[in-house]
Amino acid sequence: MINNEELPIGFTMELAQHSDILNLFSKLDEASKQEFINRAREIKNRDEMRSYVESLGDFISG
């Protein structure tokens, strides 16, 4: 499990708003989770983060 201190706060907040995406994210292997987290660190505003998290749902669910 990834330590919550490693998660960007905006990413965490958006995942909390999208429980379906959070559920999908939690089932990923650690390497995939880390890749998504690293990309999230590059996002600088709320709207971009929301779009990113929503796009993760589409990507993960296929």
Rank of each mutant, 00 (worst) to 15 (best):
F36C: 10
E6Q: 12
R39T: 15
I43H: 02
T12M: 07
I60Q: 03
S61Q: 13
A31D: 09
I37T: 05
M13A: 08
T12E: 09
R50D: 09
A31R: 15
E48A: 10
L22R: 10
I60M: 05
M13Y: 08
S55K: 14
I2Y: 10
S61L: 09
I37L: 03
I9N: 03
L22W: 04
E6A: 09
L22K: 11
A16L: 13
D47T: 04
Q34F: 01
F36P: 02
F11E: 02
E35I: 07
H18L: 11
E42W: 02
K44R: 07
V53F: 01
N3C: 07
I21L: 05
S55T: 12
L24W: 03
E14Y: 04
E48H: 04
D47V: 08
G10V: 03
S32P: 00
A16H: 09
H18S: 06
D58T: 11
L7V: 07
N45Y: 10
Y52Q: 06
S19F: 01
F25M: 02
S55F: 11
E6S: 11
G62A: 12
R39I: 15
R41N: 10
F11P: 01
F59I: 15
I43Y: 02
E5A: 12
L15P: 00
F59Q: 13
Y52G: 03
S55G: 08
N45L: 04
F11A: 03
S61D: 07
T12Y: 01
I2G: 01
S26R: 08
S26K: 13
E42T: 15
N4L: 12
I37D: 06
N4W: 11
M1H: 11
N45M: 01
S19P: 13
E14I: 03
S51G: 11
K44M: 10
L22F: 05
K44E: 14
D47C: 00
K27R: 14
A16T: 00
A40S: 11
F59K: 15
F11K: 04
F25P: 01
G62C: 03
I9M: 01
D47G: 01
K27G: 09
H18V: 03
F36K: 13
E30Q: 10
E5L: 12
N38E: 14
E54K: 14
E30P: 05
L28H: 08
S61C: 04
Q34G: 02
L15E: 07
I21M: 02
S32D: 12
L24M: 14
N3L: 07
R39Y: 06
L56V: 09
V53G: 05
N38T: 05
K33V: 02
E42D: 13
P8F: 05
L28V: 06
S19E: 15
N4Q: 14
N45R: 10
E54M: 11
E30R: 05
R41K: 15
E54C: 00
F59T: 15
I37P: 02
E35H: 06
E48V: 10
F11H: 05
D58C: 04
V53M: 07
L28F: 03
S32V: 13
E6D: 14
E42N: 12
K33F: 01
E48S: 04
L15C: 05
D47S: 08
L7P: 10
S61N: 14
S19Q: 14
P8A: 08
I2D: 04
I60D: 06
L56Y: 11
D20Y: 00
I2T: 13
N45A: 06
E14M: 13
H18K: 12
S26M: 05
R41A: 07
G10P: 00
R39S: 12
M1G: 13
Y52N: 05
